[in-house]
Every structure is written in structure tokens, then in C-alpha cells.
Nucleic acid binder design. Structure first.
Lengths: 128, 128
DNA sequence: GAACTATATTCCTTTTAAGGTATATTGAAG
DNA sequence: CTTCAATATACCTTAAAAGGAATATAGTTC
């Protein structure tokens, strides 16, 4: 992947927020929606964008789609370097830190519409 | 400066090439034109873009404008980190390395239109 | 299989960025 | 003061990105 394409992935605020969350580990789309407070389409499209460029992978778990950063072994040196750089920069970014705090406050599984949790993707957290 | 703005500066191929050259030290516009082989307007605009966002500074020397990366002290931690990352990534990029090789082959001062050198900005090289 | 949930995709509109041509500016040289 | 060289800017056109509404898909539940 060309270097400029990596920067193209990083040059949008929504994608930065998504990647920042993914640096913590795999997440399902509903988590992104809850944390970012953006429309479903918008989030889905940016995730597709990142997936098309191999920065993230996705797998289905029931109705949920779980997104994760490309495995380290699948990262080009350029991508690896930039993700490391991003992780570092994110620590100094209040909005990105706020997103992480929000994420921690979420229930550990999808509980859409405030309903009592009955099911949800399992094993999302705890594997970075 | 917001993180996303840094990535916006980096997400264009021409700007990447300009910054890559500037990592070697200050340069005048004619050098960029010679190395990139792009139109004067295009180069000038991208330099303006970078200057407006404080990634580079410019000073006049006679007819020439000398561009340089923002002094280290003027770099935000995010910018510093990303420039370091870019420097590293550039080493693995054949096109960017080719630009550097081209730069080395240039006369040390502006000698436009292949004419014998009579004058030109002095002291461009040798101070990174 | 009908209804529902989560997510993706299509189609369209709006916004933004990029690039070109022509022109302006600035300093140098005569 | 005129001319020239180097660079910047204005103005315009085109291309690309972003975002929304509506719809499609895939899996689940009953």
C-alpha cells in the first residue's frame, strides 16, 4: 500500500476516531455508533473505506459485524509505523481520549435502544 | 494544530514529495520544480498550503523563495512525531528516494533554463 | 416463512480539493 | 524607469469526497 493512501485513511476526523477506538481492540458497529454519535451510514461507509484499504478486517457474529485492526503481521512497515505514531498522538488528543472514556462506559455487549441486554456479540473486549 | 490537519497535509502525493525533500534542508522553489517536474502553479500552491498550516516557513532571498520545515521548536509533538515517522517511511519509498537522488544531482544553486550559473540563492544546502 | 435487528449499499446532492490559465507581485538588472 | 526572472494569487473548471434518504442484505427469532 502506498504511503499516501495511508495518510488518506487518516485524514478524516471520523476515520481517526474509528481507528483510535480500534487501537483498543475489536469492536462491533453498534459500539462505534454509541461512542461517536454519528449516523449508521456514515460509520458504515468509513469502516468500508478502511476495510477496502486493508487497515481493518471484519467478521460477522450473528447480526453484528466485528471490526478489528489488521493483524500486526498483515501490516506494512509504513502502516505499522503510522499506527504507532497515531497511538502516541491520540494520547495527547482530548477528543480522542474522550472517545476512549466513552467506550469504557459502554456495556460490554450491544444493548441497542436502551433495552435490557438479552444477547450480543461475545468476546469483543479483552483481546487487543 | 489538530491531528487531522496534519494528516490532511500529508495525504497528497505532491505535498509528500515536497516535505520529503524539505526533510533534507531548506530549498528554493526552483529546486522543487526541477525535481518534481510539476508546474510552477501546482508547486507554489502546495507550498502555500503547507505554509498556511505552519508546516513550512519561507523567506525571500533575492528573486528566490526559500522554503524550510518549521523549526523543531515550532513543531507540536504531533507534528514532530509524524515528521519522524515520515522520514522513516520515506526511506522505504522508491519514488521518494528517487526524488532525493534527483536533488543531489542538481547544481547547488538555481540555474534555470540550463543557462550557465551566474547567481542564485546562497547557502541553501548544508544547513538542515 | 414473517417480522425484526444490525449492517451494507445504492443513488443522489452538496462540499471540498485539485489543477489549469491568466495575471499580479516583488525584487534584480540594466 | 523599463524589462526580466521567480514566485504568488485570482478565477475558473473539473474531479473527488462526504453525507443523507431510501433500500437491500443477512442473520435471528418466533
Amino acid at each position: 500500500m502506498k504511503l499516501v493512501s495511508i495518510y488518506e485513511c487518516l485524514c478524516d476526523a471520523t476515520r481517526l476516531r474509528l481507528l483510535n477506538l480500534l487501537l483498543q481492540g475489536p469492536l462491533c458497529v453498534c459500539h462505534f455508533q454509541a461512542v461517536l454519535g454519528e449516523s449508521q451510514v456514515k460509520i458504515s461507509k468509513h469502516l468500508s473505506y478502511l476495510r477496502a484499504r486493508r487497515l481493518v478486517t471484519s467478521r460477522r457474529e450473528g447480526n453484528w459485524m466485528i471490526y478489528a485492526l489488521a493483524r500486526p503481521a498483515a501490516r506494512s512497515p509504513e502502516l505499522a509505523a503510522n499506527l504507532t505514531c497515531l497511538r502516541k498522538c491520540a494520547q495527547a488528543s482530548p477528543p480522542l481520549q474522550r472517545d476512549l472514556a466513552q467506550l469504557k462506559n459502554l456495556s460490554l455487549a450491544c444493548t441497542p435502544k436502551g433495552s435490557a441486554r438479552t444477547h450480543g456479540p461475545s468476546g469483543i473486549f479483552g483481546r487487543s
